[in-house]
Computed example of a mutant assay.
Amino acid sequence: MQCGSPDCPSREQGWLAISNFGSVRSLQRGLAILQAVNRHNGMKAADIAKLAGVPRPTAYRLLETLEGLGFVIRSQSGDMWRPTLQTKSLSSGFRDKDWVAQIAVPQMMKLGRKLLWPLDLVTFRNFRMEIRESTHNISPFSVDHGMVGRGLPVLDTAGGRAYLAYLPDAEREQVLEALRAELGEEKVGFHEDGPLEFILDRTRQIGLGYRMRGFNERTMSISAPVMAEHRPVACLTMIWIGSALRFEDAVRTHGDALKATARSIADELARLTLENNDL
């Protein structure tokens, strides 16, 4: 049957046929085959089978199925398989915000269960620090709930200060100019924790944004930047009750773990971004 004839199944019908015929294991193998082809952009079926960990006859069957669906193509001159532009459709629904759920949340939950104090992941939006995810719901020490989606002031929070400290100079000045226009010079330059320049310098020295006073008198916080291409894309903040833990002790006992998790999120985000750009 030639593709294009009235009886030729559509790609959507092809996916349904696979679902009806195969199993979850077949789907796993098919995705492994597609990933192998995509990574190497030109491989023999035998090598694809070995890399994907499937029997050679299965690899041939799945490659022919993927070819029928338009995701791979076999060279005319030999047994070499390559991905097609159709593979880009698999990443078309991926949005920048999806990395939060895919990468950040699992690592936040893991760290949150270890530290017990609640964690927030914040990003810069409309000159506020927006809480994207939180572990307040699993923390036995949380004093705040329903935090996701809440906007926090940039200048008065550990996450906002970490964000500003690690922004490229030109971007930081643009943000500060906008905040001066909104708040006035005095509210931008001076805070209960000291002058802004002093706070940002200390943030870079210890590798953590911090808040000891102001904004919420019951709590303190430290925040590690999640870096991507030499700029922060988010900040991971730990919040604790000030009367229960001294600031210096919090930095000493939890600071390294917070920074390590922020780096791990950044590394995983870089890997995922590279894979999606390669599609």
Rank of each mutant, 00 (worst) to 15 (best):
A36G: 05
T123K: 15
A228D: 13
P225Y: 00
L183G: 00
P232T: 13
A46G: 00
K187H: 05
S77R: 05
C235W: 09
L272C: 11
P195G: 09
S223V: 12
D156T: 10
A158P: 08
Q86R: 13
L200K: 13
S91T: 14
R11A: 06
A234C: 07
S243F: 14
G112N: 04
W15L: 11
H136P: 05
E133C: 06
L63S: 02
V54S: 04
F215W: 13
Q35R: 01
V233F: 04
D120Q: 14
S139H: 12
V24A: 07
W81R: 00
K50L: 08
N38Y: 06
T253Q: 12
L196C: 05
V72K: 04
G151W: 09
E64D: 03
W81V: 03
L121C: 14
L183W: 03
I73K: 07
D47S: 04
I199W: 01
H191Q: 06
R95V: 12
I241F: 13
D169Y: 07
S142L: 15
L274C: 00
P57K: 06
I239Y: 00
G209N: 08
C235Y: 06
G151F: 13
I138M: 11
D193M: 10
V72Y: 11
D278M: 10
K114L: 09
L16M: 06
F141R: 15
C3P: 01
A104F: 06
V175I: 07
L152C: 09
L119D: 12
I199S: 08
S243Y: 13
A104L: 05
A45S: 06
A270F: 09
A178W: 00
S23K: 02
A32H: 01
F124C: 15
A228V: 08
E12R: 02
L31D: 01
K110A: 03
L34M: 02
I103C: 02
L274Q: 00
G189M: 09
Q107E: 07
R125M: 15
N277E: 10
L27I: 10
S23Q: 00
S264G: 07
R56Q: 03
S139V: 14
M1L: 01
T58Q: 06
H145G: 06
A165I: 06
Q13Y: 02
A104H: 06
